[in-house]
Amino acid sequence: MDVQCSYYDAGLCRSCGWMGRPYDEQLAAKQTHARALLADHPDARWLPPVASPEAGFRNKAKMVVAGTAAHPTLGILDAAGRGVDLQGCGLYPDELRAAFPAVARFVTRAAIEPYDVPARRGELKHVLLTRAPDGRLMLRLVLRSQEAVARIRKHLPSLRAELPTLAVASVNVLPEHKAVLEGDLEIPLTEQQTLTMDVDGVALHLRPRSFFQTNTDVTAALYRQAAAWVQQSAPTSVWDLYCGVGGFALHVHAAHVVGVETSEEAVASARATAAELGRPATFVAADATAWALAQGAPPDLVVVNPPRRGIGPALAGWLEGSGVTRVVYSSCNAVSLARDLAAMGSFAVREARVFDMFPQTTHYEVAVLLERRT
């Protein structure tokens, strides 16, 4: 089906630049774009792209809060900094959309003044809501200060009564006036501080400040593909660099698996999952590049899943000269992927696949299996 959006049609939100474009055309265009960027690897075998549900696929909502405490908006800001309410956005599953009105009513009950960006006053900047596959919810309120925390604690029981699936809640404090999503201070509001994201039977623990892919179904397909590529070479040792909460590391099988991630919260989550599963995996909180360059012997295989900037010249150069024979590279930016591959001339792309994490937009994930040329 082709998704229709009233917000897009009314010109209120243009975040989905491909809204209304037939989905098969979207998927084909992403495949064409990725292949063009990796044209220096003409022998690569391109697997069929992994499609996503066209709507209701997002497992988390990042809502800017505006308006007033009596009438808050949850959505985005327009060009003048005024709130545009997007509680009915079709990218979110029904369970998330059903939670937005309860959260808005809670903002009113707790008298939390939304942050006014043009005037630089107010408290509540963002509502971050995540849904686990089992339906449980994590709510994070990003505030300018701790002024409203006592009122939030007082009224939280009423929100939990209205939203019985709310399992994890916290306040994040972002004092600065800048275009970022969250600050460094996280204040737990519930005893439980971990949401369980079950992906193909691997119960990944997600803490409030840990990253997780926004499309659970397509993420599961990505992990399966990576695990299949790893299994082909039956490595004894695997490094998962930029491992997040351990998604790749805990889906692959090897005698020695090490995951490296800068976020200490994500590493704590990964360690908890590994302990529950009894997996022989070690997780380290460190910069992936610095850690890799400081090691002695390289592993048999490396998995990398960097942010949009890619792995960069230092890590690409290390991989080039390391003696590692296989690399699985998962990228959310095929432009930086192509740039990194150009610095790794000893590797050829053997197989590649597009994973459509973000329907209705130009964005996608692409994963490649690299093998050292003989």
Rank of each mutant, 00 (worst) to 15 (best):
C243Y: 11
Q146H: 08
A234G: 01
N172E: 12
R350A: 10
L370V: 13
E320P: 03
H256L: 12
A343I: 00
R140T: 11
N172S: 10
S15F: 05
V252M: 08
A272V: 07
V368A: 00
A169P: 05
A334P: 15
L337W: 13
W318Y: 15
P72H: 14
Q87P: 06
V84A: 05
W318E: 03
T325G: 05
A290F: 06
K62T: 05
A220M: 15
R45S: 01
G345P: 14
Y7S: 02
A167C: 00
A34V: 07
W229V: 08
S263V: 03
Y223F: 15
D2F: 03
D356Q: 06
L141N: 14
W229L: 09
P49D: 02
T194Y: 05
F347A: 02
A254Y: 09
G312F: 12
G259S: 01
V64R: 12
Q232V: 10
A79M: 02
Q31Y: 07
G247D: 05
R160Y: 15
L181Y: 15
R339W: 06
H41T: 04
V149S: 11
T325P: 01
A111H: 11
T194W: 13
V304D: 10
N333R: 03
P188S: 13
G323C: 02
Y364F: 14
M138S: 08
D24F: 01
A51I: 10
S15R: 11
A111Q: 14
A297V: 00
G321R: 04
E182D: 02
V335Q: 12
P114Y: 15
V304L: 06
G20W: 00
V202N: 04
F100S: 07
T325C: 03
T325I: 02
G201V: 08
E54N: 10
G321K: 13
K30E: 02
T219L: 12
S170C: 11
L341W: 05
L241D: 10
A290P: 14
Y242T: 11
T32M: 11
D340W: 12
P208L: 09
L37H: 14
A104S: 14
A297G: 03
A203S: 07
T374P: 06
S210F: 10
F248P: 13
L166I: 04
L250V: 11
V354Y: 05
R45P: 01
A111V: 14
M63E: 06
A132W: 11
E276Q: 13
E162I: 04
A10N: 12
A255C: 08
L250W: 10
E351P: 00
G11A: 11
P188R: 02
Y23I: 04
A167D: 13
R309E: 11
A29I: 00
L141A: 13
V65T: 09
L206K: 12
L301T: 03
M357N: 00
D43W: 09
L166Q: 05
V335E: 15
V368S: 01
